[in-house]
Design a protein around this nucleic acid. Structure first.
Lengths: 118, 118
DNA sequence: TCCAACTATATGCGCGGCGCATAGACTTTT
DNA sequence: AAAAGTCTATGCGCCGCGCATATAGTTGGA
């Protein structure tokens, strides 16, 4: 259990934090790209840029994500700051997903979800 | 579409608001009872009482819920303030449940949910 | 060519939601 | 008789959020 010490302190995640971890679980991304990724999933409204950059700093501080030194192909000035999800971040994201899943089960039983989305 | 006018303004719901609507979709309840209901679903931590009573006032103001005059069997002084979900509240809760369900689908595809909860 | 729109990050500002503490009153349990 | 539980309510202060703005490089169309 030692590796789970203090994870509860971070749960439940704020909606924007779960969105970020979910996006990063698909690969390394930068702040602006994460917003576009969330938008592409139909989430509306997508997180504000101010919310995003502050959330990234907070989550890096907490160890959920970490900076990914990414110097892509071209040697041109790269403005993007890439991040990747950490092992801790993955565990927290899984725990949050489980929590939301059981909430969805309750919603289904409560008649708020007529049928499951495929 | 007229009956849906302005509902987007309320979405996405705050977590505590969805919990309240879900609880009330199971019948009329009072603030303290809603907290116990949420606790009984394993949600931890359950919403603070301050958060609860303020959320109820806010949601009644918005028309998502309404006061339910409830004078139960005994004529003794009844301290409880019961609420019921409105038609608008039900539509909003369903829309939010759909949003969360599609988020869960994304989480499943992203490998955050190994298998569905039964 | 020039200007608008887009990409990309960052931060000050002010509002508001939240947890915490406290208050008050009644009820049940030990 | 005291303690714990029930029930609502609100003041306080923190902090997360949306909005606006700053900065600057890139892309695309009139």
């Amino acid at each position: 259990m030692d590796r789970d010490r203090g994870l509860d302190r971070l749960l439940p995640l704020r909606p924007v934090e779960f969105h970020i971890l979910l996006s990063l679980s698909g690969g390394e991304r930068h702040g602006y790209g994460i917003i576009q990724d969330i938008e592409s999933r139909g989430e509306s409204p997508a997180p504000d840029v101010g919310t995003m950059y502050r959330a990234l700093a907070r989550m890096a501080e907490a160890g959920l994500i970490e900076a990914a030194e990414r110097r892509p192909a071209p040697e041109i000035a790269e403005r993007r700051n890439y991040y990747r999800i950490t092992a801790v971040g993955t565990r927290v994201a899984r725990a949050e997903a489980q929590r939301l899943a059981s909430l969805m089960k309750a919603a289904r039983l409560g008649g708020l979800l007529t049928r499951d989305l495929k």
